[in-house]
Design a protein around this nucleic acid. Structure first.
Lengths: 211, 211
DNA sequence: TGATTTTTGTACCGCATCGAACAAATATAG
DNA sequence: CTATATTTGTTCGATGCGGTACAAAAATCA
């Protein structure tokens, strides 16, 4: 380890003796997320993040480690958010087509959650670029996609068993198409396509997927 | 214009009086493409490009303008390549499923064309990140996607007329799904998924799309 | 109160970045 | 051969970058 100072893990408030921190780590992470979301990893400087969070660079460094570690933390939290959104949508006992639309509506709620123009998907907008030269980001990307595929596949399998899909339907193939639809929505959102149009596309795609 | 020197358009060899250029513009553009493809726009420096092309920065600047203009040129050429690949695949008079697989095989031939690991799609890997804050890139992205949608839709419409698809099939919806499948392949390639596995996914998806 | 501990904020370092200035080099035109 | 036009290659400058050193600030413990 490089640091030999007496301190606990980064980000954990020891709640002990020292000067209290003047920022909320959760809020700071959300601000950092927004900043990376807009500019990407390479396109965002630590000064940008410092300005967005209101923190200064040494505090950032002490709290979250270097820029790369901070990005990985933000990426991991985004995945958790995305997984949770999908699980919620699929948890309710809705007809297949409605359940799928819930998933896409949940995704778009995230893609359009910022203040300015639609940011699209954080992963598609920032991680995909870095994945090629960064093994940790690449592995996170691959794992996240597999999780989405698996979530859809489970739902399609159930749908087939319950007669919502034809017997000869291929749940794995349909799952990849469902994930693909998320990806294209994410890309199109970043390309400036309006939300209503994306919802239209999603709706048509759901019709096709559900046969 | 900023420059007032006596010269013709950038990149055009006047074939006139001066010292001849010691590089081939086409080759240089290809090298620049590879460099941006790997590192993204923000993640690639002019020095990286100078090293890759063997040119020095003033020559780069004189030939292609600044980094942004060079990127736009590279992006535009990539689109032309992608469009051509798709047109070729759909031009031959093949059955629908085979034609679609030709498109995806053509795309993967591009995504895996580099020396090292798969770079995926140049657009998905580099333009999507910048699109949010760069109107020219965003517009190019939106226009390119529309072109792909339209290309697929035309083919699906013909397929429906010729009885390869059911009468009630929706060519526009199928086209979006076909484009979506390209997008997910591009993303997965960058995530390190091997080519054989991607081809499997594409094949299954084609089955679903063709009904 | 005084010692201790932790965070803050300023200032800074070394390096990379984009872009430009400028002279040397190399061609053609007359 | 001389003048002109264009490209090359070195060098430079101003700024931005990620990351850090260090002292002041603000809390708790004794």
């Amino acid at each position: 380890m490089v640091q030999k100072t007496t301190k606990t893990e980064p980000g954990r408030s020891a709640r002990g003796r020292g000067r209290p921190r003047s920022y909320d780590p959760e809020t700071a992470l959300r601000s950092a997320t927004e900043t990376f979301w807009r500019g990407g990893f390479s396109g965002t400087s630590l000064d940008d993040i410092a300005a967005a969070t209101g923190m200064n660079k040494p505090s950032l460094y002490a709290a979250f480690g270097d820029k790369h570690a901070l990005y990985l933390e933000v990426l991991s939290r985004y995945w958790q958010l995305a997984f949770a959104s999908m699980r919620e949508a699929l948890a309710e006992d809705l007809p297949l087509d409605e359940a799928l639309m819930r998933v896409y509506d949940g995704a778009m709620a995230i893609y359009f959650s910022g203040a300015g123009p639609a940011q699209g998907c954080f992963v598609v907008g920032t991680a995909v670029t870095e994945a090629l030269e960064d093994r940790e980001i690449r592995d996170s990307l691959a794992a996240g996609i597999r999780t989405f595929d698996a979530g859809f596949e489970t739902r399609f399998r159930r749908a087939r068993e319950q007669g919502e899909l034809k017997k000869e339907a291929d749940p794995a193939a349909l799952a990849v198409l469902a994930t693909a639809m998320m990806h294209t929505i994410a890309i199109r959102a970043r390309a400036g396509i309006p939300r209503a149009e994306l919802r239209e596309l999603a709706s048509k795609a759901v019709e096709v997927i559900c046969g």
